[in-house]
């Protein structure tokens, strides 16, 4: 089914880590054009490491990363952004002392000097609250607003593939709902997204396919529905062992 679509990102046998410590031990993963793919897994499984290796923040020691057919293994991060691979890092990493608008402007840094009017409008349409906070410094935003700004800033680079690292981290359920509503909008507009989430159930409900990572490898892969129904996944990642069917 997924092989019918064009491939946006193809990761083959990827190994990477920090110094001598190998964290990723042969990852195979594929994201098709227009797909939303979720990466789930416990703390320390290597999800963030995988995103970092894809955009060149850490150099892979073996394996290949292909982006739209082109080999980009070990690319420089600034070139990855230029090519259209844009990550919203874990913990948002906003420019705290700068205003919302300045943060957005810097998101478009890789595009050089261009008119950004349309891009601001798009972000403000997606997250209206940011429009009201334009001249406020990013550090004064609430957690949810900061996450929206982080996503907005990434969108300013006009990504072809958006990599999101735990956008729901530390947010109240209502705000998580808003973030995922925005992701649904992006999905319906045809954006391609690779999403890392702790809340597997939530993420899979908003995705086409998913991968389960365990200690640096892919333990399981499948369509979002299959994973939601998989016994192991339900047991380990969806927290249904004690709770039975929940209501979320």
């Amino acid at each position: 089914m997924s092989s019918e679509t064009d491939t946006m990102l193809a990761i083959e046998g990827l190994h990477a880590g920090y110094g001598r410590v190998e964290v990723l031990r042969g990852i195979d993963l594929r994201v098709g054009v227009g797909e939303v793919v979720t990466l789930i897994g416990g703390n320390g499984a290597g999800k963030s490491t995988l995103l970092k290796a894809v955009i060149g923040l850490i150099p892979p020691s073996a394996g290949r990363v292909r982006f739209l057919g082109e080999d980009i293994t070990g690319i420089q991060p600034e070139r990855a952004v230029k090519a259209g691979l844009v990550m919203v890092p874990e913990g948002r990493m906003l420019f705290g002392p700068m205003t919302v608008r300045e943060n957005l402007e810097l998101g478009a840094h890789s595009r050089g000097k261009t008119d950004l009017t349309e891009d601001y409008e798009r972000v403000f349409e997606l997250f209206p609250v940011l429009a009201d906070r334009q001249d406020q410094s990013a550090s004064t935003l609430s957690g949810g607003e900061q996450q929206m700004l982080a996503v907005g800033r990434a969108l300013m680079a006009r990504p072809r593939l958006l990599l999101l690292d735990e956008p729901s981290l530390g947010l109240a359920p209502k705000l998580i709902g808003e973030i995922f509503a925005a992701l649904d909008r992006l999905r319906s507009e045809g954006h391609t997204i690779l999403l890392v989430e702790q809340d597997a159930r939530l993420a899979l409900r908003h995705s086409d396919r998913g991968y389960v990572m365990r200690t640096g490898g892919i333990a399981l892969a499948g369509s979002a529905d299959d994973l939601l129904a998989d016994d192991d996944v339900r047991l380990i990642y969806l927290g249904t062992w004690h709770g039975g069917e929940e209501t979320t």
């Binding site: 420089q76 948002r92 810097l106 840094h109």
Partner: peptide
């Protein structure tokens, strides 16, 4: 502007595609 960003957050500046 990129240098100011770098001060705010180096990881953020990198994810915006700045050649730090």
């Amino acid at each position: 502007r990129a240098m100011l960003a770098l001060h705010g957050s180096e990881a953020g500046a990198m994810s915006c595609g700045m050649d730090l």
